[in-house]
Each structure stands twice: as C-alpha cells, then as structure tokens.
Write a protein that binds this DNA or RNA. Structure first.
Lengths: 132, 132
DNA sequence: GTTCGTGCAAACGGTTTGCAACAAT
DNA sequence: ATTGTTGCAAACCGTTTGCACGAAC
C-alpha cells in the first residue's frame, strides 16, 4: 500500500485521491510551496482538483501536524513538511527558502526575557545562497 | 519647524501634508501597523488621503531607510520605525508584535554556514506576553 | 440517512496599477 | 515645460465562504 495512505490514516485523515495528491506534493517538497503552488503541482497530475479542496486539505494537514505553515514570504503563507524545530534562510534574489538545521545555530537569552513567555523561536536568515 | 519635515527633507523627500501625516503615524508608532492601519490612523486627521498615497509613501519611506518592512503577520506586511537591527516577539493571542533589543539575545553559528552568505538575521519569538 | 469531502463561483482583504488632475521646480 | 505628487477606480492576487452534489460510513 502506498505509504502516504498509511500516513494519512495514522493521523485520522480519510485518504481520498485529492488528499493523496496534495500529500504527495506538499509532504515531499523541500521548496516551501505556497497553497497556489501546491495547487498548480497537484493539477498537473489531477487537473480536476479545486482550489478550495487544496486549501482545505493543507489546513487539515497543518491541524493534524503533518505540515507547518510559515510566514516567510510577503503576501502568502508557505508550507513546510519539516515539522521538527529548525531555522530558515531566505535568498534575497530568488526568494527561495531553505531549511537550516536546528543545531547549526544557537540562540541564548530567550529564556530570561522579563515580559515574554516564549513558546517557540526560530532564526530567520537573509542573504544569498552560495553558488555551488 | 516641525522636526518631521526636517527629517523628510534630510532624506530627500518632499514634505507634503499627506507625507507628513503618514510620517507622524508610521514613524511614531511602536505597534508595527500594516499599511491599512496606517491609512485608518492618517484618515482620522486627514480624511481625504487616498489609499494609493499611503502605500506610495510607506514604500518611499522604506526605500529611503526611514522604515523597515517586516513579514511577521499572515497576509500583510507591517512597518517598523526601528531601523536598527533587533528581534521580534509575536503574541500568539493578540497577534501584537513587540521589539526585542538586539542585545537581549545572542545568535551563534550563522557565520559558519557552508551554503549561505548571511547578510542579516533576526530571531522571531512566539508566545504570550506576560500580564503586567 | 447523516456525515464527510469535493467543486464551483462569488466574495473578501490587502496591494498594485493606470490615468487624469494638480502642484512644485 | 518638465517633473513630482495626489486621488480615484479598476484590477489583481491569495484566500475564504456558501452552497449543492456526491461518496462513505
């Protein structure tokens, strides 16, 4: 059986063809796609899928902990299948977003803030990705 | 002379009444307002100002370094008159954004990333503001 | 047969654009 | 005269909503 179907079931999500298609795109992409980018990708395989279904499904996945929604681009939310804590790098030129492993950076001082009860933190880096 | 007029001139900006009004709202607010929130505030004093003028003016101020645009809220950009490097705390319940002084936190490791040429970094904290 | 999922189209909120009128230089 | 600034309305883009049809339990 397709492992994605099992993953959805495990999270109490009925595995419909549309949801499987969304899952295959959104859970396997490291590109931090927006909802509309997921929609475009999904439609290449399954052109009948509606915008509303993709938005519903993405929100459902976020609710169930399969995805995280991140506010890193102007005007749109992006979805990240890496749900463990990590940081992000945003390329100034391309706008592309890259994951930065949690252990690559260390933040100190956030525990001793007088006014704020910090639940989570992340570092947002901006600059240029090095030409490989 | 109004200090705001001098500030605008110093940055090569022609000081029109509309721009002065936008400046008084956006440069003196620590609330990290969105463009529409600035518009609403400005219109309380000067109801004839158009939406386009406020958007134009805010972008001009960002271009000239009087404001920074920050991507911290879903669906909208917010403007921050504090242009020196600092971090941000976002209240989960109210959505309000607070400045966190640069020296309150320390980030290490961002200089030794192989793939990325980091130009700037900031920490985004989320949680609850302590009831004072 | 009631609930759940889907598709469509309209509505919505924030932002941008085109253009005509006007003020400043 | 040329350039810069404003206001209005329409367009635009990402997202949400309402509703009716159909599938699953």
């Amino acid at each position: 059986m397709d492992p994605v179907i099992e993953l959805l079931r495990k999270h109490g999500i009925q595995a419909t063809p549309q949801r499987i298609a969304v899952a295959q795109v959104a859970l396997e992409s490291a590109a931090h796609p927006s909802a509309d980018e997921v929609l475009a990708q999904v439609r290449r395989r399954c052109p009948t899928v509606s915008r509303a279904t993709v938005y519903n499904t993405l929100h459902l996945f976020v609710e169930r902990g399969l995805l995280h929604a991140q506010v890193l681009r102007e005007g749109t939310v992006v979805f990240d299948p890496l749900v463990e804590p990590h940081h992000h790098f945003v390329d100034d030129e391309t706008g592309r977003i890259y994951d930065v492993p949690w252990d690559a950076l260390k933040v100190t001082g956030h525990r001793s803030l007088a006014d704020f009860d910090v639940r989570e933190h992340q570092v947002v880096l901006r600059g240029r990705r090095r030409r490989t």
